[in-house]
Amino acid sequence: MFECRLPKAEVLKKTMDALKDLIKEAVWDVSAQGLSLQSMDSSHVSLVQVTLRTEGFDTFRCDKNIALGVNMDTMQKLMKCASNDDNITLKSEDNGDLLSLIFESPNGEKTSEYEMKLMDLDIEQLGIPDQEYSCTIKMPSGEFQRICRDLSNIGESVNITVVKGGVDFSAKGDIGNAKIHVTESSNVDNEKDAVTVEVNEPVNLTFALRYLNFFTKATPLSGQVSLSISPDVPLVVAYEIEDLGHVKYFLAPKIEN
């Protein structure tokens, strides 16, 4: 039997919002470590990986590892029935074909129980290599969202050039060109507003804005986003979920032939 409880439904609602435009179906793997999910989008250009650790839950019980195959659209719809402040319990029997979602209002006066049909999914899993990156940029997540949105008005791709002390995001299109330069913060009072740029070697790579705009749906989960970049490998766009885990997106670069 699997059962877990979170004090606020809000975080799981935001997590579903961050996933449902990119993937249609996915498997939540449940183990003693927590909940995790890994899936590529239908065109295999990007991959999303979510980890929600046991320690972040109020209660977490998992007698046996199980895989919960879900339709993301359905799960997101049901999650929307919870108020942000409701506490939420997820429950499933070991060999069951249902996932129960129980929402309880903070004053305990209203309890809603939904049951979602699970799917038998066979989803290809990729091994994510544990590697060092040439550059890591941390910046306010809202700023990154804005840059991706604004550059989409110009072109389909963004070229990211990282040098010591700053990053250039540039796009080219039929109507013209754009370049946004973000400089590393020299002095920041609030950590959430900081831009930090770690460079082991300068990099210059091109990525599809369409996918980056999908990734920025995770913005409400975290004040900061980190971008890890190395030559000729997928970009990692990571959002930490405070005290609970993370949502990480991987995006294959565009490569010049």
């Binding site: 899993q125 091994g127 091109t206 599809a208 010049e256």
Partner: peptide, 14 residues
């Protein structure tokens, strides 16, 4: 010409 890479080209099936 610029080609879009695919995740399968970078990460192996586990």
């Amino acid at each position: 010409k610029i080609n879009q890479g695919r995740m399968d080209d970078f990460f192996k099936i586990s």
